[in-house]
Design a protein around this nucleic acid. Structure first.
Length: 437
RNA sequence: GGAGAGGUCGCCUAGUGGCCUAGGGCGCCGCACUGGAAAUGCGGUAUGGGGCAACCCAUCGAGGGUUCAAAUCCCUCCCUCUCCGCCA
């Protein structure tokens, strides 16, 4: 994932400012420009020498064809020219390779500049753009006197036998929840419900991707080398457990060129997600707010550049539809430059309200990468028939992640009598309107 | 896992060291012919990089090697197909 060389040359100021806004080192931009100049110089020298060598070799062929002795003086002289050029090419090639890898290294450290409408600053500059639904209180005064206190999701789940964290730890490790009974069914119901809405109502194409990807795919979406610590790796087979369906689904079209009329391409994909959560030890250890394996429906879009800004708004709205239908209160945050990530141009986070733990829980992150991700994967399209290919814009967003949604459902729909009302849209999938009692 | 066959331009295919600067067919685009179309003819039809440009460089699954010169020869790997074994 990196900034394009053409753009680097054309608008270095914008890229420099983008780096500053994201809290990255802007001097890298100038170092990269210098190396790029050197690269082009070396490439020119090298290409000229290669042209000489090719011409000499060709002449040898022609001379022999016309009857010259293959070991005669004429051929020997030409052979010398070719050999000499080859020697010089190798010398340049060494410096060129070093220059290119140094340049590549620098480019990887230049962030994707944020869109102009993104607030500049750290997390404190994040903007709540809208809030939906009723923010339920933890403590509810009862008509008959006294107070009912909403319990955290792990207590609700324990009473209703919906998941079993202890046994999950026994068979796999902590952070690998076992869903049981109606808890298991709720997983299926949520996945089914979300995919049904995204395909039947939102027109997306459903994808059921592999749960492991090869190194090329992990590299394509930038999981390696940057985030290798976050992934489960299968070294024997050089495979990686997917941390999100974004990885396999975006890579579907790696090294492909679309015709303009094929875009946009919009996918909805269910996959299990595996995350080592290295460095997160001690955070959210109770319940299922932070786990190593979870399930998620992800939306992945390939768009024409001019359509991507609007597509992000629509994408975010499609994730909101899921939360609205589930009747969960949520808010939408527009992430500020230093809090949005290195590769995103604009990002919204969706957070649901969990009244039992009295917290906003992130269940979706919707991003426009513009051409930054497409560049590394060489995903392009032809604006018009016969035109030169241009990079597409890629976007993705959760629609939505299950565990925290489950937590919010349990905490929102729990009843004073200990039972759980099933959200209306899930009743047909759950085949019941109530769990417990 | 074992044995064999194969991976060339959007698709099919030719090509076993040097006019391959990769040929032909199909498809597609343009032009001509036509009242319009079909058929036919002519031309064009990959990607990346460099150059004001003419043009040059790289890429024949990937990576190495041999050679003045590699689609072609050698090595390693990947993938596809067929058969056998195993298997939900």
């Amino acid at each position: 994932m990196s900034i394009g060389l053409a753009r680097l040359r054309e608008e270095p100021d914008r890229i420099r400012q983008g780096a500053i806004d994201k809290g990255e080192d802007p001097t890298i931009v100038d170092q990269a420009l210098a190396l790029e100049g050197r690269r082009r110089q070396l490439l020119g020298d090298s290409d000229r020498l290669k042209a000489d060598r090719n011409a000499a070799s060709k002449k040898i062929g022609e001379a022999i064809h016309e009857g010259a002795a293959p070991n005669g003086p004429e051929v020997a002289a030409l052979r010398q020219v070719s050999t000499d050029a080859g020697t010089q090419i190798e010398k340049i090639a060494a410096e060129l390779a070093a220059t290119e890898s140094a340049l590549e290294e620098l480019l990887l450290r230049i962030p994707n500049p944020a869109d102009p409408d993104v607030p500049v600053g750290d997390a404190s500059a994040n903007r709540v753009v809208r809030t939906w639904g009723e923010i339920l209180p933890k403590d509810v005064p009862l008509a008959e006197g006294g107070t009912w206190t909403r319990r955290p999701h792990w207590e609700v789940a324990e009473t209703l036998h919906m998941f079993d964290l202890e046994r999950g730890a026994k068979i796999s490790g902590s952070g690998f929840p076992v869903y049981t009974g109606q808890g298991s069914r709720l997983q299926r119901a949520l996945i089914d419900f979300m995919l049904d809405v995204h395909t039947a109502e939102h027109g997306m194409t459903e994808i059921w991707p592999p749960a492991v990807v090869n190194a090329a795919s992990a590299r394509g979406t930038g999981q390696i080398p940057d985030k290798e610590d976050l992934m489960y790796v299968v070294p024997r087979d050089d495979l990686y457990l997917v941390p999100t369906a974004e990885v396999p689904v975006t890579n579907l079209h790696r090294d492909e060129i679309f015709e303009a009329d094929q875009l946009p391409i919009r996918y909805a994909a269910y996959s299990p997600c595996f995350r080592r959560e290295a460095g997160a030890a001690g955070k959210d250890t109770r319940g299922i707010l932070r786990v190593h394996q979870f399930d998620k429906v992800e939306m992945v879009f390939f768009e024409k550049p001019e359509a991507s800004a609007e597509a992000l708004e629509w994408l975010t709205g499609r994730a909101e539809v899921i939360l609205q239908r589930l009747g969960l209160a949520y808010r939408v945050l527009l992430m500020a430059t230093k809090d949005m990530g290195f590769v995103q141009a604009k990002k919204y986070d969706l957070e649901v309200w969990a009244p039992g733990v009295e917290r906003w829980l992130e269940v979706s992150s919707c991003s426009n990468f513009r051409d930054y991700q497409a560049r590394r994967m060489a995903i392009r399209y032809r604006p018009e028939a016969g035109a030169k290919p241009e990079l597409v814009h890629t976007l993705n967003g959760s629609g939505v992640a299950l565990p925290r949604t489950v937590a919010a459902v349990l905490e929102t729909y729990q009843q004073p009598d200990g039972s759980l009302i099933v959200p209306e849209v899930l009743q047909q999938y759950m085949r019941t309107d109530r769990i417990g009692r």
